Amino acid sequence: MLKGPRMRIFALKSCDTCRKAIAAIRAAGHDPQIIDVRADGVSDADRAAIIAAFGDKAINRASTTWRGLTDAEKDSDPNELLAAHPTLMKRPVIEHAGQLYLGWKADVQALILG
């Protein structure tokens, strides 16, 4: 039996944290739609919602992609950065019951898994 409204997870196939989150969410009885930010991309509307919710925190400054950017690129608008480099998005971003959640730390796990 599926729980609640449709859930979407913005993830990256190669991300261990994303894989752990997806496995735990499925084990809890949810059947989320997985959006691979590299393969599927992130729509303008979704990207705008993520930036509206998290601002600068939506950018993963510890990523290999970030380290490869020029200083000028690092100073650019988060929306432009994520449009050009979707893998810069901190992951996972989980959309559930009209809310967006960033990452997979204990607080997000408690809210998503109950």
Rank of each mutant, 00 (worst) to 15 (best):
K90A: 07
F10N: 03
I34P: 00
S43G: 14
A49S: 15
A45C: 05
R67K: 15
A49L: 14
V42A: 03
D71G: 15
Q33R: 13
T87S: 15
T87W: 06
R26A: 10
T17P: 02
D77C: 08
I94R: 01
A106F: 08
V108P: 01
A52G: 15
A72M: 14
P92M: 04
S43N: 06
P78A: 12
D75N: 15
S14W: 05
G114S: 09
H30S: 09
A110W: 08
R38M: 07
G98T: 12
N79L: 13
A110F: 11
A110C: 08
G41Y: 11
C15H: 06
G41Q: 09
N60H: 09
S76V: 06
G55W: 07
F54D: 03
C18Y: 05
R38D: 10
A11W: 02
L111N: 11
I50R: 02
F10D: 00
W66Y: 09
T70N: 13
E80S: 12
V42Q: 01
K105F: 04
G98Q: 12
I112S: 02
D71T: 13
R47M: 11
I51L: 14
G114K: 07
S63H: 07
K90Q: 13
D36E: 12
A58W: 01
K105Y: 06
R47E: 01
K13M: 09
V108N: 06
A27P: 04
A27W: 10
T70K: 13
